[in-house]
Amino acid sequence: MSPILTTFLFEAANFLVLAAALGWFFFRPVRNAIAEYRSKIETDQRAAETKLEEARKRHDQVDQAYARLHEDIAREREKQLEAAREQAGKILDEARQVADRELKLSHHQAAQITNSQRDRLAEVAATAAAASVGRLLEELSGERLHDALVESACRQLRQWQDGLAPVSVEHSLPLSETQVEALKEAAGKAAETAEFHTVDGLGAGVRVLTAQGLVDASTAGISTFARRSLVKEMQDRANNPAVLQDVSDA
């Protein structure tokens, strides 16, 4: 038998045997293992896809919850802001009211202080003016002034005539007989019970106390009258804003 032919046939058979043996011992178990791997991978991939789907659903749920929470927070924030605005408005209104009250009170107190100071100032001014009048009258004091004041008191008494009793005549300077007679004549019937007293501080003139009123015709009385008149005049002028404005403009 030819060696070449033998080798040819042997090699062909050898290859077939090799293919069969490798197919059985090598390729079959390896392909089975690969198939198992693929199956396992597909199973794992399906499980992973399922878990991924669940994760996506949870992610969506979390997103929705987050969106809801965000909306709730925004709503609550708006509510809190609105409440804060209302509270701030209330506080502001209350503060304005308190401030208005305080302002009014301050104005009132300022007005009171102003009035008080004004009255005091008027009092002081009037007192000073009265003192000036008193000093002026004292400087002018003389018989003629004394006579004029007594005559003035007599005229006043003559106007009243009836119902003057009891009559009390006060004077600081001595009264002449003529003056006394004139006073009694002016007092009329009440002259019978009239009393004459000498008091200090009246200056010239007399002060007659009757049932119908006081007739103060003395330099002290004139000073007092002048002071009261001046005070009243100043208060009246102070209470008139037009007059104050005129004074301020001036």
Binding site: F10, L22, F26, P29
Partner: peptide
């Protein structure tokens, strides 16, 4: 009557080695 050539021996050895190696690999994979 059958001559055994050097090629036959070589290829037979290679075949045996391949089968053995394949069997070992197959068993390891299995």
């Amino acid at each position: 009557p059958v001559p055994i050539t050097e090629t036959m021996v070589t290829s037979a050895i290679v075949t045996v080695v391949l089968i053995g190696l394949g069997a070992v690999m197959g068993s390891r994979v299995r």
